[in-house]
Design a protein around this nucleic acid. Structure first.
Length: 220
DNA sequence: TACCAGGTCCTCG
DNA sequence: CGAGGACATGGT
């Protein structure tokens, strides 16, 4: 199985996905904001880098459409920053993210993650970039509610560091080509070893796998 | 109307 | 360990 060939094929069929989708203020919900332009959307009431991490937590076993509603609620309430989430009452946070499902658990997860950012990184998620990806990963995995897929999504999409994200769609795709591992890291290292170590490709590839995974008529 | 979605944690053997 | 269950809403 030529893994880069599969990527090119996916790209040809589904086109650039432009992940991670970000809520853009002026025009309501919009997707495909280039990573380099995220910084100009930073404000006291919302942080797009943090928003990506929030989305990664909220989308755990949940359709993105529901997550988008929850993120929109957080945006309208002007609480899309670590400091605001850390201060907000749990009951109110639960109400805002309710459309994303598992809302009690996820409110707790967002609280724990935000408290941790406030305590250790002055409420600025981009300060994590100073560490190596592997170190960030270890730290994130110690937090309750953040498992390997969520940690890797945060590192790849919110911090723009090259770690390959594995999800159920990725495992299914691999299985089609008779590639199987027992552990999450088996899959991750398989992709990381065989692909050029390039953030953009990792970001696009995972998004394309999800796009084809959702497509019932996928031929890849 | 069932089934399922861009997982993670907990419990029990 | 590893299997099985809990967590929850909205779309198709």
């Amino acid at each position: 199985m030529n893994i880069f060939g599969v990527y090119q094929k996916l790209f040809k069929v589904y086109g650039p996905q432009g992940w991670w989708p970000i809520l853009v203020l002026e025009q309501g919900i919009k997707y495909s904001i280039p990573y380099r332009s995220l910084s100009k959307y930073r404000a006291s009431f919302r942080d797009p880098y943090f928003e990506i991490a929030v989305g990664a937590i909220l989308t755990q076993s949940t359709a993105w459409k529901n997550v988008a509603i929850a993120i929109n609620n957080l945006y309208n309430a002007k609480v899309l920053t670590p400091n605001k989430i850390s201060r907000i009452k749990t009951a109110r946070l639960q109400t805002l993210i309710r459309p994303a499902g598992y809302y009690k658990q996820k409110a707790k997860k967002l609280k724990i993650f935000s408290d941790w950012l406030v305590k250790n990184y002055n409420g600025d998620i981009t300060r994590l970039k100073r560490c190596k990806a592997s170190e960030i990963r270890e730290k994130l995995l110690t937090l309750w509610g953040i498992g390997p897929e969520t940690a890797d999504s945060i590192i790849l999409y919110a911090l723009n560091k090259p770690l390959f994200v594995i999800d159920e769609y990725t495992r299914r795709l691999c299985k089609k080509y008779s590639v199987e591992f027992k552990e999450y890291d088996g899959y991750r290292e398989f992709f990381e070893k065989k692909l050029p170590k390039n953030n953009k490709i990792f970001q696009e590839y995972h998004a394309l796998i999800v796009a084809s995974g959702k497509d019932k008529h996928t031929k890849i």
